[in-house]
């Protein structure tokens, strides 16, 4: 009678999801189309079977998506029968609550936080599941499973509730909410192994393909209407895949020929750079993630 580490992680994540549904009135799952949130959806299906997933999926749409990720999202919603709610960054910009960045590399990453908080407020969500993992980034290594957010949606890393055993304290005052990270203890490899062993379909951009690429600050960015090619920069077609799915303007590709799950796993095992190393949004400063998290980011 022994569970493998992956089975233990799965059991832990399911336990947390059930706690949230029992402790909160209006939970939601923040769905990006990336592998981590795909895992969350699978875990939610398992946690509540034979009932449907008892909370909506929320997608914060920057308008700068990979079309493949959107196609995947819509298929997933159709397959699971889950409810989908979309918050558009465009709408926040139109309302004037968010202002587009200037320059050749305008990122809607910070704007996303505005739309996310507006969506949470609009639907009165009191707990939002996120697919963040502690191994991703050093500020995230200090994150709780149940992460308290004040009425401004802010994270206060110095004043977090201690989390003991598997007892999760979801008590909060009116207007506050929680972010909950069921796969906190998973690593990138765990996520890939889980996707492989559960045969979970993933968006095609995770597999090798030919794509127009602009190399900028050592990053391979997908050429798209959302970025401006600068003088001296070349657009070339390369054989690449993506390790994460985010905004098209800041998600870097890696040169890769991995065309199957198995090849991806082999590649992840030998990669010597963290997956957030491909994200321009994290490269802005050493505390970039910490600052965004404090402001209410995912």
């Amino acid at each position: 009678m022994k569970l493998t580490h992956l089975q233990q992680l799965e059991a832990e994540a399911i336990h947390i999801m059930r706690e949230v549904v029992a402790q909160f009135e209006r939970p939601a799952l923040l769905f990006s189309g990336g592998k981590d949130s795909i895992c969350l959806v699978k875990l939610a299906e398992k946690a509540f079977w034979p009932a449907k997933i008892p909370f909506p999926l929320v997608h914060i749409d920057t308008g700068h998506n990979f079309p493949e990720a959107i196609a995947y999202r819509d298929e997933l919603v159709a397959r699971t029968g889950a409810t989908l709610i979309i918050g558009h960054v465009e709408d926040s910009i139109a309302r004037g609550t968010a202002v587009e960045e200037k320059g050749p590399n305008p990122s809607r990453n910070t704007l996303q936080t505005v739309t996310l908080l507006e969506t949470i407020e609009k639907y009165k969500f009191d707990a939002c599941f996120g697919g963040a993992r502690r191994d991703e980034e050093k500020a995230r290594a200090k994150e709780r499973f149940f992460s308290h957010r004040d009425e401004f949606g802010q994270w206060d890393p110095k004043n977090q509730r201690p989390e003991l055993w598997n007892l999760y304290n979801g008590k909060k005052a009116v207007g506050e909410h929680f972010r909950v990270f069921p796969i906190s203890n998973w690593t990138e490899m765990d996520v890939w192994q889980y996707i492989a062993s559960e045969n979970i379909p993933i968006p095609s951009i995770y597999f090798t393909h030919q794509r127009e690429i602009v190399e900028r600050d050592g990053q391979l960015l997908a050429n798209s209407p959302f970025i401006t090619v600068m003088p001296g920069e070349k657009v070339e077609t390369r054989t690449v895949r993506f390790r994460t799915v985010g905004d098209m303007t800041c998600t870097g590709a890696i040169a890769s020929e991995a065309s199957t799950m198995d090849e991806i796993i082999q590649e992840v095992a030998t990669l010597r750079v963290t997956e957030r190393g491909t994200r321009a949004d994290d490269k802005r400063s050493e505390a970039a993630m910490e600052d965004r998290k404090k402001a209410g980011y995912f």
Binding site: K142, K158, A287, E290
Partner: peptide, 16 residues
């Protein structure tokens, strides 16, 4: 992991 920790050379909280 946190800015205050790097600045002060201390560790504030449990990290995993």
């Amino acid at each position: 992991g946190l800015r205050a920790e790097r600045e002060q050379g201390i560790t504030i909280d449990v990290a995993y």
